[in-house]
Design a protein around this nucleic acid. Sequence first.
DNA 1: ATGTTCGATTGACATATATCAATCGAACAT
DNA 2: ATGTTCGATTGATATATGTCAATCGAACAT
Lengths: 241, 241
Amino acid sequence: MESRRKVEACVNCKDRCCARCFDVGEDSIFDCLTKEELELLVKEKRHIHFKAGETILKQNTAASHVVCIKQGLAKIIAEGDGDKKLILRLVANHSILTGGGVFIEEIRHFTVQAVTEVDCCFIDSDKIYELVSRNSKFAFELLKLNNRQNIQMLNNLVGITQKYMPGRVSDLLLYLKNEIFKCNPFDTKLSRQELADMTSMTMESFIRILKEFKSAGIIAVEGTHIHILDEDALNVISKKG
Amino acid sequence: MESRRKVEACVNCKDRCCARCFDVGEDSIFDCLTKEELELLVKEKRHIHFKAGETILKQNTAASHVVCIKQGLAKIIAEGDGDKKLILRLVANHSILTGGGVFIEEIRHFTVQAVTEVDCCFIDSDKIYELVSRNSKFAFELLKLNNRQNIQMLNNLVGITQKYMPGRVSDLLLYLKNEIFKCNPFDTKLSRQELADMTSMTMESFIRILKEFKSAGIIAVEGTHIHILDEDALNVISKKG
DNA sequence: ATGTTCGATTGACATATATCAATCGAACAT
DNA sequence: ATGTTCGATTGATATATGTCAATCGAACAT
């Protein structure tokens, strides 16, 4: 079943670029699609490459497409009044960007910007609508995806509003290690300002907390390279820091 | 079409208790259901009455039911570590409580507590799943609902993290007037502590801001009764307060 | 009337965090 | 070598907000 897809889904994309995000595995929401449905989805999609720093999706523009990240790292930003920005979360390989107004208002409520080079596919929202109508399992998967994002944002909200800075930095470090990079010495590729924007604090404050953690022997830092030495300590600080 | 529903949907509930939340209008997500589907939904639902202060749903318990608020006011609370709590939003008549883990993990991620007396229906999640499978329009409505909640939480997150207290209080007052009570002198029925918990600030701080607004002639306050006198001022403060 | 209770209010003070300004250091161009 | 740039870091200070404690005031019971 997997192989059937791999071959035929990618009729019009060279070097099997969509294999990664539409293939089975990584529990993609597309797993439940039939061959025909998958082709419908893939047929008119566009494969687009972004350089680091480029804007993939812009807040307040029409939400006419769903984007599937194949490779690379991007950040989801909520832009506030003034220059204020909050980085909601990161998206890495195989992520689907749907939330934020695809099914309602048709307006995006956040900006997505490439951190590294990013390979992704743009899929017409209409196609998604059609698949929801045709395949209830897909609708269900989409609901689950939505729900997951909802819960993540809720946890984020609670964390940011109820924790002091050390707790928020701990949460960020654990998030980066466990959910984004999935390995321990990891390279964030993010500036201090960006890391600070994920915790809703000033760059200077962020640096100070990081320094404290460093002198406490909890982490080792070199540039954007971070090594978590004492994860338990971070968990403790996260709980009541 | 409307009348057809009203009569037959309520076979096993006295005084047509479910008429309000399952009837057409108030753009309920149930509008798109056929007569049979609606009966399926209603057949085994349970109608439950809560007194003010009672807990309707409890965080971290199984999300086995979807709740439909028929009448009354309830608050959605995210409980953090310690006594910390954040009131995410209020739910009034005709609201559907689904989000927060119905479609995933099966665990609720927030508590819902009655502010006034509350009349509501408990519907098995299984029924919802079944309807998603059978009726793609319903799935679509559910996706929209989810999306709306997601966006609301996003705005909440941005507001709370990027605004000073006066801006947050302004937002709260406008929210209460425009989205919950929908009339101008309104009775919040919420204590100062609860109002403060909606803005992620201390009760004392909340009271001080309220007092400032009062002396500036922007609002009139008497107990839980609030009258917005200068909405424009609130909008201005909300923008960059 | 009198006391009790409990939420609302006020004031004095503490502190977490932001702001502002200066310095450092590596990458890079000249 | 030397200057330039730009992010990272550090320090001094300001301020928004929280904490703690006291008072007020209405509802209620005695």
